[in-house]
């Protein structure tokens, strides 16, 4: 509950402050956000499965963000940045959808 409140507060603060994203972070932030969302949905699913662990959540969150950023960086270096970014987004999107489906089955039996 408190992390969910933290998410809402973060969004509100971001909307109010209208921060300028630093240049070096601009290519990585969108992918990092998607990766973090994947970690969040994975965490909710773990809660419902009864196997949630704070430490696992924190580590998976951070590793998702770092790996996503690294993949984008690598793709840009190899000249396939846009294709690799699309690939990462697709993979994370699929994972998010499967997590959401699992959550749905847990909560609504549907």
């Amino acid at each position: 509950m408190i992390p969910a409140l933290g998410l809402v507060v973060g969004i509100v603060v971001g909307v109010l402050l209208q921060p300028e994203v630093p240049l070096w972070l601009q290519p990585y932030l969108p992918i990092a956000v998607i990766a973090a969302l994947d970690a969040v949905f994975g965490a909710v699913r773990a809660v419902l499965d009864g196997i949630f662990n704070d430490k696992v959540f924190v580590i998976s969150f951070l590793s998702n963000v770092v790996v996503a950023g690294f993949i984008v960086y690598l793709g840009d270096q190899l000249g396939v940045g846009s294709q690799l970014s699309t690939g990462v987004v697709v993979v994370l999107g699929v994972r998010i959808f499967s997590n959401v489906a699992s959550i749905r089955r847990h909560l609504f039996n549907a």
């Binding site: 992390p3 969910a4 409140l5 969004i11 971001g14 990092a32 956000v33 969040v40 951070l62």
Partner: peptide
């Protein structure tokens, strides 16, 4: 820690 991460995620979403 999780709250901090969620806070950062929300902030990042809004910023992006």
């Amino acid at each position: 820690l999780a709250t901090l991460l969620a806070l950062g995620l929300g902030f990042a979403i809004a910023a992006q």
